[in-house]
Amino acid sequence: MREFLRHARLAWYLGGIGLQRLMTYRADFALGAGAFLVRVGVQTAVVGVIFQFTPAVGGWTLHEMVFLLGFSLLPRSLDRLFTDQLWELGRRLVQQGEFYRYLIRPVNPLFALLSERFFHPDGFGELLVGAALVAWAGHHLDLELTPAQWLAAAVLVFLGALIHMSVKLLFASLSFWTVTSFPAMHAANQISEFAAYPLEILHPVMRAFTTWCLPFAFTAYVPCTYLLSGDAGLVVWTPVVTAAALAVSLTVWHRGLATYEMTGS
């Protein structure tokens, strides 16, 4: 418990450092947020164009699709704000022998790694855009959530962020064996993009894969089905799936730490 509080205090402090860094590298911030807006803008436009031709896709209306798209950005943005340093692990930290520094600090190595870069600039744009899309679509859908559903929504966003983190951690940890695992991380990230769309439009194999293998369906599709229709069929599995994803990725991470070979002299 004392260790937990210590880490929480450190996280607070290092979060401050992260924000301070945003101010120092303002161009980075603008570029990241700008590029992100363009991407989501295009994504939303595509959805809009599709609905020019058809009133519903896989049983989803335009507003429901936008709600799903917006919601999918929320856990993803949380994940991006706090765990983006994992990309560096997959890309170069093992390859260039720099990873050692997280092992010589008196904090949890995963915490040491993640806290080196809290508040990745792109995350803020993602969070704001996601919230705006959800609010806009929710308004048009006349969505009325009970307090319990609001709470559930918040928890589901948090669990979704943990799922994103687990998948990223799993593929980033492969670099302990393969030296760099950027291509694998990139592939997983591509698949995570499907979270923004209804499972109904995916091939059944892909549907099963994003539900039970890399469970991105639980980050947006499952929570949205629940919030929009009240269908609680799959959503109750979200905590279990999250726990399983975390367990697998943390196991691989710990194995990776034990096999870590610091290169060079």
């Binding site: 022998g97 520094r101 010589i104 008196p106």
Partner: peptide, 17 residues
């Protein structure tokens, strides 16, 4: 690692911490 890290100081000349 954590308890050890409190008690040791490390420099690897080729790398940065």
């Amino acid at each position: 690692r954590r308890r050890t890290a409190r008690r040791i100081g490390v420099v690897f000349g080729q790398r940065s911490q």
